[in-house]
Design a protein around this nucleic acid. Structure first.
Length: 822
DNA sequence: TAATTCGCTAGACCGA
DNA sequence: TCGGTCTAGCGAA
């Protein structure tokens, strides 16, 4: 009887429980037996819970030749590295793309990474494979789970820990994440703050509902401000605030490089810990040269600065500068005040205007939150699609995304993943280049009644329609098949669906479906923004495949495939052009995937629509052209030198009066606003009102202002990025010269910094005269430079198209001055 | 940690 | 001091 009772108690102890939630984060941990296990952070109704999965083991594959049994024995007997790592089990497996494959299991990721270096040297091992797939990623792929989706877990408690028995995905259509935004202001004894010596002055923690400020200054005490006795207590208060509310996301602006490392170090100096991780850990700082990241466990750190950089890279947004003030201004048109480091120190030391500091701190946090929350839905979708945590998704590259999809798909199709190329091979690949898209020289001058047609997702649609993939390339079964024969001379299989295009097709179909769903919803529906983000994420992914094919570090690199895609693109865009000509339209310009046509008097909008319909019925597969828009007027110009027309620079105006300026100085950050804005006005006057005289006047006015020294500083700043370290520059341009001078004055400028400079009066060469904007006094500028090198070059080519010359801009002004003398 | 090619322009650099 | 060449950056697609 007694024994039975005991047994019953034991069983109760091991009683299985279930928990449901959202998979927020996961990491790999070491158990007491020195085995690797997966720890899952699950967002549940009660908060974030961590659970441990012990059954999943690290593994890699080898492809072998020769005697299998002999090899297995040798492998199992072998001890690797100093700590004598062993292969624990070997499974014989068959893959779709490889016959002789062994799967090698290890106790820990450490054992695997030790063993993988020696494994290829063992006789009979032809190749190692999938040895560098991150353990947590491997877990997600093998269990077909994705972060930020629903998960149901069955577990049992063991020594206070929740050990996972089983888990399964529970689709969650859309999720709500609770976020908090953190921003700090610091003291600085020298030009920049150092956590070793300079205290944190104030911190803002913002949620969509409210903002709280934490500081040590009693003067700040009021509603919404926590005042602590010491700085140490202040940091502890920040930690408490973040931990207490169980947030899912921590938002910062440049927290990767500043706020989080600073707080971590400062906490150490003060004898406390900045333990904001869900498991009580401090942020994990990663550093690779210029790249910094601060990872927090459980709670996902989303750095809005990284988000912005990525969005610019993907061409989703265009920005001149990446500092918070400029971004807010550019995205929302809201000017945001800025306090310099010196002003902050002044406020702190004098105790005057402390409210201003508090307000500034708060506004930074609120602005950061606004940016992050706008793009959070997009990143949630990227996270789900790529099976990366939100933290990783916020820092992912285009190649990383494509690779994630292909690796996952390989597993689903039981295929072995190709290895990453070695450095040597990468270099070899980089040395060979292939031809890109076709660009036709336009007809310079003013044109009327223009229609722009373009291919919808040209590269992806070529890949899908012609089955472009490394393994379908030049297949023996369809030698020079007509359907998939590229103008490059290479051809692609007609019988077997290619690996890459099959993934692309899935993405495309998903996107089409979502777009259909969106049509049924009102824009105010909460699902609308989720769907919008989802289709956008899919679009970004789809467009990244072609680049990945030609990317030297790609696992699925295929020079011939990339070459074939562009060969087709050139073929199709020209074909549209010649067909349009046959229909009586005139080709004005072409660039890669678009055709600019002039609609003759006798033709109508309907004729264009009919033409597009006809073309689409003739295009293969999913290829399709669409009407980008009808334009009332457009201007194309000649190049700076010679009489040839300039490509990639034009301006259009539609029938509603909307201006589209492409390629001109106006859209470039490395031109002064005075030149950009003057150019825009000229284009506007010419296209909108057809008034060249007024345009001339505008230019004259700008020149006059410059000459008189009246042009404000902000209209003179030229922005340029420092793209390499100073010693690596062979030619020292104005921006590098200005940056170097600023560094001497104590400014912190590194690779990736965008510097704003002004060409001043003092110096000989332009570089000599260039100074960082902040060191230049109002009125100190080289008027001649801004007239001759900025304003005139920006407008001269446009004005010349209208029959005017440089003399009309300059001498016109002089005549007026003479006139006043008479 | 890094998607591609095409194209324009500025300004330093260098040798005559 | 001039003109050609090369480096550098940014944008279009």
């Amino acid at each position: 009887m007694k024994k039975q009772k005991q047994k019953k108690e034991e069983n109760e102890k091991k009683e299985k429980k279930t928990v449901q939630g959202i998979l927020l984060d996961l990491d790999s941990i070491q158990t007491q037996e020195e085995k690797s296990a997966i720890r899952i952070f699950l967002k549940t109704q009660k908060g974030i819970e961590s659970l441990i999965e012990k059954k999943f083991r690290p593994y890699c594959y080898i492809i072998y030749s020769g005697d299998k049994e002999k090899l297995k024995k040798a492998l199992l007997e072998r001890e690797f590295g100093e700590h004598k790592a062993k292969i624990k089990e070997i499974k014989e497996v068959k893959k779709e793309n490889e016959e002789k494959v062994l799967q090698l299991f290890f106790d820990s990721t450490r054992d695997l990474s030790t063993a993988r270096n020696e494994i290829p040297t063992i006789e009979g091992v032809k190749e190692k494979r999938e040895y560098d797939i991150i353990f947590t990623k491997r877990f997600l792929i093998d269990h077909n789970l994705e972060p930020l989706n629903g998960l149901e877990i069955e577990y049992a408690e063991e020594e206070g820990k929740k050990i996972i028995e089983s888990l399964k995905k529970k689709e969650e259509e859309s999720i709500e994440l609770n976020s908090v935004t953190l921003d700090i202001e610091t003291y600085s004894t020298t030009k920049f703050s150092s956590p070793k010596t300079d205290p944190v002055l104030i911190a803002a923690l913002s949620t969509p509902h409210k903002t709280i400020l934490i500081s040590t200054r009693k003067e700040l005490k009021k509603e919404g401000v926590e005042v602590t006795g010491t700085e140490k207590e202040m940091i502890e208060e920040i930690v408490k605030e973040i931990k207490e509310k169980n947030y899912d996301v921590l938002i910062t602006y440049n927290g990767d490089s500043f706020d989080l490392p600073y707080l971590k170090e400062r906490a150490k100096v003060l004898g406390t810990r900045f333990a904001i991780g869900t498991d009580g850990s401090e942020p994990l700082l990663r550093s690779h040269g210029q790249y910094h990241a601060a990872k927090t466990k459980g709670i996902q750190h989303l750095d809005a600065y990284q988000v912005i950089r990525t969005l610019v890279k993907f061409g989703i947004i265009s920005l001149v500068k990446y500092d918070l003030e400029s971004v807010i201004e550019a995205l929302y048109g809201e000017p945001k005040g800025k306090l310099t480091a010196r002003e902050i120190v002044e406020i702190w030391d004098s105790g005057k205007n402390l409210d201003k500091l508090a307000e500034y701190n708060k506004s930074d946090a609120v602005a950061t939150q606004k940016i992050a929350l706008q793009y959070l839905p997009l990143y949630i979708e990227i996270s789900k699609l790529t099976k990366e945590t939100l933290y990783e998704a916020g820092r992912i590259s285009a190649s990383g995304m494509v690779e994630d999809l292909l690796i996952d798909k390989s597993f689903r199709e039981n295929k072995l993943i190709p290895n990453r190329p070695k450095e040597e091979l990468t270099k070899k690949r980089a040395a060979q280049t292939f031809k890109g898209g076709y660009v036709k020289s336009p007809e310079p001058g003013l044109h009327e009644n223009i229609v722009v047609l373009d291919f919808r997702s040209l590269h992806p649609s070529i890949m899908i329609s012609h089955n472009v993939s490394p393994e379908t390339l030049d297949c023996p079964c369809c030698y020079k098949s007509k359907k998939n024969l590229s103008p490059s001379g290479h051809y692609f299989c007609e019988k077997k669906k290619g690996f890459l295009p099959s993934v692309q097709e899935e993405l495309l179909n998903k996107r089409i479906k979502i777009k259909e769903e969106m049509k049924k919803l009102s824009k105010k529906d909460s699902r609308y923004s989720t769907y919008y983000a989802r289709q956008y994420a899919l679009k970004i992914l789809l467009n990244s495949f072609y680049g990945y094919l030609g990317y030297p570090r790609s696992r699925w690199y295929s020079f011939e495939s990339a070459q074939s895609v562009t060969a087709w693109s050139r073929h199709y865009v020209r074909e549209i052009g010649s067909k349009a000509e046959k229909e009586g339209f005139k080709i004005l310009y072409m660039d890669t995937d678009s055709n600019f046509l002039i609609i003759p008097e006798e033709k109508t909008k309907e004729d264009i629509e009919k033409f597009v319909k006809k073309i689409n019925s003739e295009l293969p597969g999913v290829m399709e052209i669409e009407i980008d828009g009808f334009y009332k007027r457009g201007i194309f110009v000649t190049k700076k030198e010679g009489t040839a027309a300039a490509k990639k620079r034009y301006a259009l105006i539609d029938y509603e009066g909307n201006l589209k300026i492409v390629g001109f100085e106006y859209v470039r950050r490395d031109w002064a606003p005075i030149a950009k804005n003057t150019q825009k006005r000229v284009i506007e006057l010419v296209l909108k009102e057809g008034k060249p005289e007024k345009a001339i006047e505008t230019v004259k006015e700008a020149i006059k202002q410059l000459k008189e020294g009246k042009t404000p500083k902000k209209d003179l700043v030229i922005y340029t990025q420092i793209k390499k370290s100073f010693p690596h520059y062979e030619a020292i341009g104005p921006h590098v010269a200005a940056a170097k001078k600023a560094v001497k004055k104590g400014k912190d400028i590194g690779i990736g910094s965008i510097i704003g400079f002004i060409v001043t009066k003092t110096g000989t060469s332009i570089s000599d005269k260039a100074e960082l904007e902040e060191f230049v006094k109002e009125g100190n500028y080289d008027a001649d430079y801004y007239i001759e090198h900025q304003v005139i070059p920006a407008v001269i080519k446009i004005i010349q198209e209208l029959g005017y010359s440089k003399e009309d801009l300059i001498h016109g002004g002089k005549q007026a001055t003479l006139g006043t003398f008479n």
